[in-house]
């Protein structure tokens, strides 16, 4: 059985998104949360490239992906900056200590 490249990419996309969401739901470490977000965005980005390929507009798909990378990098930077501050102010990166805002 052979798997076509688009199918393989699709599986990777679904895998990345699935792992990302699973990680978001279960992890208790702030850095891991940011990594999970990265996985998710990479999956979505791959989906855009795939979409461009499937519709015969490879260049458009890739330019979308590059834009997403830029935006996503900024998100990661802000996320890491927040993490640094959290570590400084709260003293830990454990999400269980970030539950003061309730009810």
């Amino acid at each position: 059985m052979t798997i076509s490249i688009p199918t393989a990419v699709l599986i990777i996309v679904l895998g990345l998104v699935g792992i990302g969401i699973y990680a978001l739901l279960t992890t208790r470490h702030l850095i891991k949360v940011i990594v999970a977000l990265q996985l998710l965005v990479k999956g979505a980005m791959l989906a855009l490239v795939l979409a461009g390929h499937l519709t015969g507009q490879d260049d458009l798909g890739q330019s979308l992906a590059i834009t997403v990378i830029i935006a996503d990098t900024i998100v990661a930077v802000i996320g890491m900056a927040l993490a640094v501050q959290v570590r400084r102010v709260v003293g830990t990166l454990d999400l269980r200590s970030l539950t003061s805002l309730r009810r």
């Binding site: 969401i21 739901l25 999400l95 003061s100």
Partner: peptide, 17 residues
Amino acid sequence: LRSTQTGVLGWNVAYLV
């Protein structure tokens, strides 16, 4: 109802899913 606002990030994501 206020107890649904758990303050736990994991739950917030779960609501979304």
